[in-house]
Design a protein around this nucleic acid. Structure first.
Lengths: 345, 345
DNA sequence: TAAAGGGATGTTATCGATAACAGCGAAGCT
DNA sequence: AGCTTCGCTGTTATCGATAACATCCCTTTA
């Protein structure tokens, strides 16, 4: 266990500085009125002993915490890193530390994470939207004693606040993009739609928008494979085999779109002349390859910032702001035909 | 603050079940000997009240914790997700929950994270190697009361245990790969080498191995840009401008290599006929595009598993195992010329 | 000069759990 | 019967901090 003897406590520091534990506590928190001389002595004693406060005791006693829990589906999903960076850049200056948990889209794992995080009585909890929440998780959240915020999804308002795009709008944007260009034979390629409910809503919105135009969306998905480039490539191969006459494809995300593009190139399908391709996210990936992917840009950092700002407001007792809807922008690349007039929302 | 009234405590459950708090505590932890009937009553009471244990109090009292702290440089770095999944798959079955912190390669941020994590008295702490550790961080770690493990780097043994590849070996593998193919005009493309000391060691090993063969490595790096595809593309452009006669390039990671490849294609440099390219990591990215990148495969999940196993052993008081060195494998793709004889270590 | 005010520090109770041990009745043993 | 043993449950002290209030002493002020 490598327990290096006894850990130093407030008491140890107090003895060394020749004051009471209360005085030490006040000095280290910058609370109360303590003379400059005592301050110095205490700080020096703490420094010499290498004192590290015990948050378990501190938070238990004060019923306050500087920890913010963030639970995301997947840390490898590039999407999330920028949301997190928006969160951190807003919370860190306020002295709040974010602790991250990864659920891998598994409701049971998410529930355990929520339980573990909440049992530390955090100052707030941020959860990704679009994951099927277990009944246990809902119960845990209902009895929480901290603000809860939903990320990446403004549509469902189960929690105190939510910041994210409307995934329905995203689906409609893609549908319009294709329809404006006269596409009729349209396909969707995705994965894990049973787990990622946000992606599923985008898909359904695309499907129903097309249906309204009399078009039957061709769907190629796979629940077992990851939402990554390899899968996009694999499913595109499958799509071309079954529906060689396809004119346009929307992918669940940019990574899958890139995988798909690589197969389209190899298979000799010119993009966008023969097939149009649209991704989702506007990640830097989209600009890293030969083709600039047409995609939907989501203001990821801003989502994190808005969520964090709302949290700060709630912690400060300033009430619960309304949900924030992120602006989406369809970014024209060279994987769909550029029209003369401006694109986007 | 949305404090939903008083949070239920052990006492509340005890009163409702008509027993003492101690009995409730024992039932919920599965400790002690409690009759089946009491067990049932307590569990039902806890369930009805939606009781959520307060870990602050529990861990404070028992001086035990089920939390494991993991601090990584960047969650967007695909590399880490598989290491983490190896960690989780080993720790979760044991009832340990991992909490992640992201340092973004910033020593000050890392120090604050270490402080925040340790102040919760975790069961263990896992840190990524290859980041310049501040003196404060070192001091914090020296006085920790839990096992500490270094990930992603087996070379430096500052902590109790370390699991990772030898980055020197990686550099040498690449050097040999180029030398075996008769390359003389060799370049390295990387970013943020001032922050990522592991990458820097790979680079230095490559450089010195080549120097031993009388070759002067051409280096193109940039400290301000991210270690991603866009940067690989940008720096490759710069490299070709300054050194059009180059024969081989090693990139810091696969993402940068893919960005570089896209520019090489556009600029009309056939790969591998005119220029050979080698990446690092063996991520799934490497197989998602037209070209199968020659790269060095690192057993990421296994690194996580070994680290977690070592942690479990140390928590169990079974002593400190020796550092574990991950096997590296140079995977021949089609971005370098295949030789007749087998490749690799 | 006595009362009031305020700066600096200490005392006590408490946060919500667990460790350690103490009780207490029923069963087993001689 | 009397004693031990064991199963079950409760009591007390404690973990390491903080909140709230109490002191103490030195200035002001009338």
């Amino acid at each position: 266990m490598s327990l290096r003897g006894k850990v130093t406590t407030l008491r140890d520091v107090a003895i060394r500085a020749g004051v009471s534990t209360m005085t030490v506590s006040k000095v280290l928190r910058g609370a109360g009125t303590i003379s400059e001389e005592t301050r110095r002595r205490v700080k020096q004693a703490a420094e010499e002993l290498g004192y590290l406060p015990n948050n378990l005791a501190g938070s238990l006693s004060s019923r306050k915490s500087r920890m913010v829990a963030v639970i995301i589906p997947s840390i490898s999903d590039i999407v999330f890193s920028e949301v997190l960076s928006g969160i951190n850049s807003t919370l860190r200056p306020q002295g709040l530390q974010t602790f991250i948990g990864e659920s891998l889209f598994d409701p049971a794992t998410e529930t355990e994470l929520i339980r573990a995080m909440l049992s530390f009585r955090p100052a707030g909890i941020l959860l990704n939207g679009g994951i099927a929440r277990s009944a246990d998780a809902a119960k845990l959240l209902a009895r929480r004693n901290c603000p809860a915020i939903q990320l990446w999804d403004c549509d469902r308002r189960a929690l105190d606040f939510s910041a994210g795009p409307s995934h329905e709008e995203a689906g409609r944007l893609v549908a319009n993009h294709f329809l404006e260009r006269g596409m009729r034979r349209i396909a969707y390629v995705g994965a894990e739609l049973d787990k990622d409910l946000c992606a599923r809503r985008r898909y359904l919105a695309l499907k129903s928008s097309l249906a309204a135009a009399g078009i039957d969306l061709i769907t190629v998905t796979c629940e077992e494979r990851p939402r990554q480039a390899v899968t996009g490539r694999y499913l595109t191969e499958q799509l071309l085999r079954d529906h060689p006459g396809i004119e346009a494809v929307h992918f669940l995300n940019d990574a899958m779109a890139l995988g798909g593009l690589s197969h389209l190139h190899e298979a000799g399908f010119p993009v966008p002349e023969r097939i149009s391709v649209v991704g989702f996210n506007g990640t830097s990936l989209a600009n890293a390859v030969r083709t600039r992917l047409t995609t939907i840009d989501v203001p990821r950092a801003e989502i994190g910032e808005k969520a964090a700002q709302a949290l700060l407001r709630m912690i400060g007792g300033e009430g619960v702001p309304d949900a924030w809807q992120a602006r989406l922008k369809l970014v024209q690349g060279n994987t769909t035909i550029a029209l003369g007039r401006p694109q986007g929302a």
